[in-house]
Design a protein around this nucleic acid. Structure first.
Length: 201
DNA sequence: CTACCGATTGACT
DNA sequence: GTCAATCGGTAGA
């Protein structure tokens, strides 16, 4: 239990990884304590033909982690917030899954003090809020997610099977047509449910 | 060096 | 629903 998912889990098509990350447990061991939550919303960013991918125009200092081995974190900043991705596919193939929201399960008081709010639904709903609640910043860019040290993802055996819905990605202005956002149906911790039109898989 | 632009959030109509 | 604050990353002079 809470053993990190193996490297091979991430060494696959990011769409498959994204779907299977739903229901998994994200764990963060920070100096001030442990926080954990069930992943309920993700987005896939593809290595090919995906203009929304930060790596679409090639390797830069920011996106270097996406070109590295699968199973590592890619953390980047936008609008003064941090966002967490899990890198997928082999070295040189820059794809990733953005973790957009989790349902808090452990360390709620720590999350509340970091976020400055009480409502559990707002603690980690949205990629920037999630990183604030979990104390994730650029220092975790490149962190190996397959070792249980600072940041990892594990199976949550007690979690019931979930119904998955798809939608277009949030905030993406190019490649809008693709339904690369995946989230747990009817879960109140999802950042933006439903969106264009619903389709249950 | 400057200029532009978000894989966002929170406040507001 | 709309809107803008805000700042690191990137491209280009």
């Amino acid at each position: 239990m809470y053993r990190p998912l193996p490297r091979e889990f991430y060494n696959r098509d990011p769409i498959k990884v994204a779907r299977e990350l739903l229901g998994k447990l994200l764990l963060r061991q920070a100096p001030d304590g442990l926080t954990a939550g069930i992943i309920v919303e993700v987005e896939a960013y593809l290595a090919r033909n995906d203009p929304a991918n930060h790596a679409f125009r090639g390797l830069t200092r920011r996106n270097a982690s996406m070109f590295g081995p699968p199973g590592h974190a890619y953390v980047y900043a936008i609008h003064s917030r941090w966002c967490l991705n899990a890198v997928t596919e082999p070295v040189g193939v820059p794809s990733a899954v953005l973790i957009r929201a989790v349902e808090p399960r452990q360390g709620l008081s720590l999350m509340r003090s970091r976020r400055g709010i009480d409502d559990p639904r707002l603690l980690a709903r949205g990629p920037g809020r999630l990183c604030e609640a979990f104390a994730i910043d650029r220092s975790l860019d490149g962190c190996d997610l397959t070792v249980a040290e600072r940041l990892w993802i594990a199976d949550e055996p007690t979690e019931l099977p979930v119904r998955i819905e798809t939608a277009t990605r949030v905030g993406v202005t190019s490649a809008q047509q693709r339904r690369l956002r995946f989230f747990v149906a009817d879960n109140p911790f999802v950042s933006k449910p439903g969106r264009p039109r619903r389709r249950t898989i």
